[in-house]
Amino acid sequence: MNRPAQAPWLRVSGIAKRHGQHTVFSDVTLTLDRGRTLAVIGASGCGKTTLLRILAGLTAADSGSVHINETDVTASTTQARGAVYLYQEPLLFPHLDVFENIAFGLRLRGASLSDLKATVGAMLSALGMHDFARRDPASLSGGQRQRVAFARALVVQPALLLLDEPFSNLDPQARADMQRLCKTLCAASNSTVVFVTHDLKEALVMGDSYGRLADGRYQGYADRAAFCADPASGVAAERAFWRDDDHTCW
């Protein structure tokens, strides 16, 4: 592919969105290189999900453009963008078993049966869920369901993987496990990921670069050092809190 070496995989320019009189955000501009993870942090209701849905092609922006791999996909469907969006809850298809849930996107893309079996089998092994292939989603724990949902999103090797607080409903241990698994599998498949969360620690764990949405404005940070150095990121305040010895009230 003849692509300039420095050209970002994802390029978002001047995206704006309003709901009636309310401006959700304006002039969101960001770039993301292939195989990197952008962690976007912001309080509940700041427009993180709306931004992800615009990147996925599930919601139209009022203005601005989205380019993936130097192609303008602003008016394209989710399928044409090659993007996959993972919701906060697993939303597994209840009429399909674990294997068929993971195979869903591959079947849509016309994968052959042998490819499908090999790819889904490998993904199940990577998840440590090979014995669960023929289980109904209802028989899985919350963490297992989220793993399957994550596998279902990743198995199609999306051009852009959009994760909307996917681990927020999990207990701390399952959440830590999923963060590790997500990092490992995304790195192995060289996936380009936008990960939104309201959890500062999770953002720091998951991201290679960072963004912050607040008051309808987007602020990008190239790396962790830049993010941590900005007082508005909240990292400094968090550090100060944990340095303070006076937590005897706990």
């Binding site: 996925a56 599930l58 469907t77 989710t78 399928q79 090659g82 996959v84 969006y85 993972l86 919701y87 939303l91 298809f93 209840p94 869903f104 996107g105 849509l108 893309r109 279902r152 999103a153 199609v156």
Partner: peptide, 15 residues
């Protein structure tokens, strides 16, 4: 919750 499931299908690339 069919609407949510179909939206999930769309998010995975289904028309």
């Amino acid at each position: 919750r069919l609407a949510a499931l179909m939206q999930q299908g769309a998010a995975l690339g289904a028309n």
